Amino acid sequence: MSRHRGGRKESGLVTDALRFGIPLVCSDHHHDLTRQLTGRPWAALFPSGDATQLADILDRLADQRLPAPDPDASAALDVPTPQDQVVFLVNHQQGEPR
């Protein structure tokens, strides 16, 4: 995932990747997200807008894949479980603050 620096919307990509056990390649566009992903073996980070760094990561991944996030990764990053998300959506009517 790559966004312009300061971008806030993740469109659920990080959540979905964690829930499905998919490693992440992510730009450092969001300070809090970058802080949470730094040092995770299943996440490769690159400076936002730096195509050379992104290309280097992708080249390395051709030879050595990132491991999948462990089952506890979602909880460690405070990502709601699918069940929690369903409860949230069911319990909030349209137009009600979330």
Rank of each mutant, 00 (worst) to 15 (best):
L66I: 07
R65Y: 00
L45T: 14
V14A: 12
T81D: 02
V87M: 11
P67N: 10
A73T: 12
K9L: 09
T81S: 15
L77H: 09
H29V: 03
C26M: 14
D63S: 13
P80H: 10
Q83C: 01
G49R: 02
P67F: 01
D70L: 05
D50C: 05
D63P: 00
G6I: 05
R19H: 09
V79S: 14
S48G: 05
A76R: 15
H29A: 12
L58Y: 06
T52Y: 02
S2M: 04
V25D: 08
H31D: 13
H29N: 03
V25I: 13
A55P: 01
G7D: 14
L77Y: 07
Q64V: 11
R65W: 00
D16L: 10
L89C: 13
T38Q: 13
V14M: 09
P80E: 07
N91L: 05
S2P: 00
H29E: 04
D72W: 00
G49P: 05
V86H: 08
V14N: 09
T15R: 15
T52W: 01
F20H: 15
D84E: 15
E10I: 07
F20D: 11
L13Y: 04
V86F: 04
L89R: 14
G7C: 10
E10R: 14
A17E: 05
V14W: 00
D56I: 02
S11N: 13
R60M: 09
R35I: 02
D32M: 02
P80S: 10
A17F: 01
I22N: 11
D50E: 13
A62E: 14
V90L: 10
R60H: 12
L61Y: 06
T52M: 08
D70I: 09
A44W: 02
R8E: 12
L54N: 05
L13H: 09
V86S: 09
S74P: 00
G6V: 04
S74Q: 02
P71K: 11
D78L: 10
Q64G: 03
H92E: 02
D84H: 12
L54G: 06
H31K: 08
Q36E: 10
Q36D: 11
V14P: 04
L33F: 04
R98V: 14
A68K: 13
A43N: 08
R65K: 10
A76T: 14
R19N: 07
L24I: 09
R5W: 01
D78V: 08
D72C: 04
V86L: 06
L77R: 10
D32V: 09
L77E: 10
S27H: 08
D63Y: 02
A62P: 01
Q83I: 00
T38P: 01
L66R: 13
H30K: 07
D70S: 15
L13S: 09
P69S: 10
R65H: 07
V90Y: 01
Q93L: 11
P82R: 06
D63F: 00
T38H: 05
D28M: 11
D28K: 14
Q93D: 12
L45F: 03
P97D: 03
D56A: 15
G95C: 07
L37Y: 03
Q94S: 06
